[in-house]
Structures are given as C-alpha cells and as structure tokens.
Design a protein around this nucleic acid. Structure first.
Length: 280
DNA sequence: AAAGGCCCCAACCGCGGGTAG
DNA sequence: CCTACCCGCGGTTGGGGCCTT
C-alpha cells in the first residue's frame, strides 16, 4: 500500500535486456554469487532495478536452466502438479529444477490450459489425471552456466540486432545443443493434427486414466505412506482446498513412485531433488 | 506482397512474507 | 511492537514473430 514501484526511478531502464547487460550481470554474479540484489545495480552500474536483475538471473541466466520445448514427461508433471497445487508455480518449479516458475507458468497459460480445455471437451470426463508423462525420457538438455555465458558471448559477438535466438528449436540447432524436447510423440502435438487430438492420443490418455484411476483408488486405501512427499502434501493442503480439483492427496506420491520405478536418469534426478527439496 | 490477427514469452507490477533495526 | 526494507511469488502486459487472408 502506497509503496512506490521499485522500478519507477528516473534513469532506471526497462524493457528487454541486451547481451551487454546480461554479460555484466552474469560476470558480477559469478564473482559475488546471487543474492543481495539491492546492491547489484549499484555495483555493476546496470541501469536496472534490483528486481529486474534478480528476475533476469533466475528466469534466464541462471545455470541449469533448460530452455525449449517441454517434454511429454515435464508436461505430465506440470499437469499433475498444477492439479494438486494450483497455480503455485514456484512450488511446481521445484519439482522441475531445470525449469523456471515463469517458464512453467507461461507454458501452462499458453499451451496446457488450452490442451486441458480441449481434452475436457473431447473426452467427456475430467481428466487431469489422464495425462501420461513421457516414458522415454532421454538425457535432458542442460545448460551450464558456462554455456549460458558462451551463448551470450556468441550472440554478442555476432552483434545480432535481434534477441539472440528466435525459437527454442532454433536455439538448439544453432547452438548444437541436442534437443531432447522436440519429441514427435507429444500427446497433443498440435502440428500433427492441427490441434485436434487423435483417437490414438485419446486412447493413450484413457489407458493412463484407467491406470491412474486404479492407482488412486489403491493409494487412497493404501496405508503405506510415501514419506518423501508426505510433508509436501501436508504443505499444500490449504491451497488445495480452495481449488476446484479435489484429488486424493496421494496422487503425486503414487505417480512419482510409479514414474521413478520405470524411469531413467531424469526421474532419478527428480527423486533426488524431491528429497532434497526444502518442501520435504 | 501486405495487412491484420494471433500467439508466445520475457519482463513488469503489485502484493505478501520475513526480518533487521 | 512497529516500521522499513528486501526478496519472492503470481498475475498481467506488450513487443515481436508467425500465420492467415
């Protein structure tokens, strides 16, 4: 209330970040580490407010950020988590350590919301649970901080007047980063069917729906508790209550267990992260 | 080719929680 | 306890690229 916006000072720059600014920010953070954002603009000379610096770092420059298309598995994760947690993007992002909350939020708002809507109209039943994650997840595209910086430098050297790269597809191509995210077996591959979900896709959804339905019933009566996720489940209760999609709280537990049982590296990563996550 | 509409996503805004003084 | 400040989060916006006509 009455608090002035942090970025409305005279001389504070707004709008897209330039590669030069990115490099300044990255090199500063490499030397000093992230945090103490208040001092970043003054120490770097960046004409940006601290908030803008933090956002730029966490959403774009931070090492380990995976950019580009979401895998089917990630998509499934997001849908499940969103159904359980609601629009708590930061919490959801904590289960997808390579994705930022902003990314997930954007992806949900631009893709998944529509898909879910479409799915609801296509299949005459609620089906958040029907989203099947990709069972063939390969090694993930993982940008290290050096990669991020080299990407910046590369873009800078080329003095491209436009943002470094256009699409995630192009990003992968131009940077020779193997794109594991351009899967052809996307459940809702819009390009393949003009946005219409095929029978095959629906079948695959339904089959998973059945699976998860069984899993739910089972897990709802199962006294075995997945302790790793229990505290998270408790933690999300208040928010879940005021959400429309009331789900048995063991959904994620069961799902994660199922997933981790059948998954490779990525899931292992997730599990590791799951247990090391402050939420747990 | 051009104009208009649509879509995506980076970035901004405003609010709330935490905490130091 | 109160206030001011810092930080993080979720909602929203708008610029630019893409698509359609």
């Amino acid at each position: 209330m009455g608090r002035p916006p942090c970025c409305d000072k005279v001389g504070i720059k707004k709008g897209p970040w330039t590669p030069e600014e990115d490099i300044i920010l990255v090199s500063y953070i490499q030397q000093n580490g992230p945090g103490n954002w208040r001092s970043v603009p003054t120490n770097t000379g960046l004409m940006r407010c601290s908030k803008s610096c933090r956002l730029r770092w966490t959403n774009y420059l931070r090492p380990g950020i995976k950019r580009g298309n979401f895998t089917q598995h990630e998509e499934g994760m997001i849908i499940h988590l969103q159904a359980m947690l609601g629009n708590r993007w930061a919490a959801i992002a904590s289960y997808l350590p390579q994705r930022t909350d902003n990314d997930i939020k954007n992806y949900w708002n631009t893709h998944l919301k529509k898909k879910m809507k479409k799915l609801h109209t296509t299949i005459d039943q609620p089906s958040y649970e029907s989203m099947k994650p990709d069972m063939n997840v390969g090694s993930s595209t993982y940008a290290s901080s050096t990669e991020n910086i080299s990407r910046l430098l590369e873009g800078w050297m080329r003095s491209s007047p436009k943002p470094i790269l256009k699409t995630s597809q192009e990003k992968h191509t131009q940077l020779n980063i193997p794109s594991t995210t351009t899967t052809t077996n996307n459940l809702f591959d819009v390009s393949s069917g003009g946005g219409v979900i095929s029978n095959e896709e629906i079948e695959s959804l339904l089959s998973y729906d059945n699976m998860s339905g069984i899993a739910w019933e089972k897990s709802s009566t199962d006294s075995t508790v997945f302790h790793g996720c229990q505290s998270m489940v408790e933690e999300v209760k208040p928010r879940v209550e005021d959400h429309h999609h009331h789900r048995p709280l063991s959904l994620l537990e069961k799902w994660l267990l199922d997933e981790s049982a059948g998954h490779g590296e990525e899931m292992m990563e997730l599990d590791t992260d799951c247990f090391s996550n402050p939420l747990f």
